[in-house]
């Protein structure tokens, strides 16, 4: 236990001292400030008197010409941060020759990987909590509308889900750092997976869904619905989809389903959306959250087992 705490503190100190994270932090804060500025510029256009959660809107609205919103920004930055935190967790220790030395001290082997993971998690948490509170503070200053209790709860949920998402990418990167001996290889592998999921997953899901359920301009609502279901089922292989769906439900209380397409169909057919209570929103995203958690756990477990069984040889 003492070993875990020591390693955790050392890793944390490393992170805080590294230029890598200084740059990353600054980048995130700047981008966050830009998004909040854009949001504050455009929030008047999106809010009408029927809008109940004005403060939450601050986190949703995007620019009118620039489709850049806070969730989009987060869904791009969090993977980068997670990967940056994890990709050289184990292999850098190994190549630098520190691992043998470290493990010859009276600590359990898993202390190393756990300590590193925890420190990374704390970094992600600090980053996300600070950026959300900063945005909230700046937003409050700019729009002058205080959040309701439920909005605060929803923002907390947003923070938790975001941390979870970061944890997933970090555990994936940690896994690669155990599998690949070169930090560059593991970084490339992580980024490749991220890019693939980010750029091509939707394309592939669309392709498969279209071949299975062909739709066109005069398809019935049922056909569109089944297409949409299939499309999203496939898309959910990507943790990014799980994250986006979760934060949509959390930040948009009005969303009665995790499918924006179905929601639009509902609105066109005359259903007026009413905001759901938080518990209902959570119920909707429960599967997504569990999915994210499971993916994180699987990646970490593989990394953990691999690391525990591996031979520690100074090469």
């Amino acid at each position: 236990m003492a070993g875990l705490i020591e390693i955790f503190r050392k890793e944390l100190a490393d992170n805080f001292n590294s230029k890598r994270f200084l740059i990353l932090f600054l980048l995130v804060y700047l981008a966050g400030a830009a998004t909040i500025y854009i949001a504050a510029q455009n929030i008047r256009a999106t809010v009408d008197d029927s809008t109940r959660y004005i403060f939450l809107n601050l986190f949703i609205v995007s620019g009118s010409n620039i489709p850049f919103s806070f969730p989009l920004f987060m869904s791009i930055f969090i993977p980068i941060i997670g990967i940056a935190l994890g990709f050289d967790a184990v292999n850098s220790e190994r190549t630098s020759g520190n691992l043998s030395r470290l493990l010859s001290q009276p600590i359990y082997r898993d202390n190393v990987i756990n300590g590193k993971f925890l420190a990374g998690l704390v970094m992600i948490a600090i980053l996300i909590v600070s950026i959300v509170t900063l945005v909230a503070g700046l937003g409050l200053r700019m729009i002058g509308v205080p959040p309701e209790a439920e909005e605060i709860l929803r923002l907390c949920m947003f923070v938790i889900v975001s941390i979870l998402y970061g944890a997933f990418w970090m555990s994936l990167a940690v896994l690669f750092s155990v599998v690949f001996n070169k930090a560059a290889t593991s970084a490339l592998a992580s980024i490749a997976i991220w890019l693939f999921l980010f750029l091509f997953m939707g394309l592939i899901a669309n392709l498969i869904a279209v071949t299975v359920v062909p739709i066109n301009a005069d398809s019935t609502v049922e056909q569109i619905a089944s297409f949409d279901t299939l499309y999203r089922m496939i898309n959910r292989i990507s943790p990014g989809t799980l994250y986006v769906e979760s934060i949509q439900a959390v930040l948009l209380p009005i969303l009665g389903t995790s499918s924006p397409t179905m929601m639009m169909i509902g609105i066109y057919s005359g259903l007026k959306p009413t905001p759901l209570p938080l518990s209902q929103s959570l119920l909707i995203v429960w599967p997504q959250l569990v999915g994210l958690l499971a993916l994180t756990a699987i990646c970490f477990a593989i990394a953990y087992i691999k690391f525990m069984r591996e031979e520690i040889r100074a090469t």
Binding site: R9, L12, A13, F16, N17, I126, S130, T133, L134, A136, G137, L138, G139, L140, R141, M142, G144, V145, P146
Partner: peptide
């Protein structure tokens, strides 16, 4: 609310600074 907003921002910055100094 203006002050609360500014306060929150200042608080976050101070907290970050403390964390950086304490743990870095």
């Amino acid at each position: 609310w203006g002050w609360v907003g500014v306060g929150i921002v200042v608080l976050v910055i101070v907290a970050l600074a403390i964390i950086f100094i304490r743990f870095g």
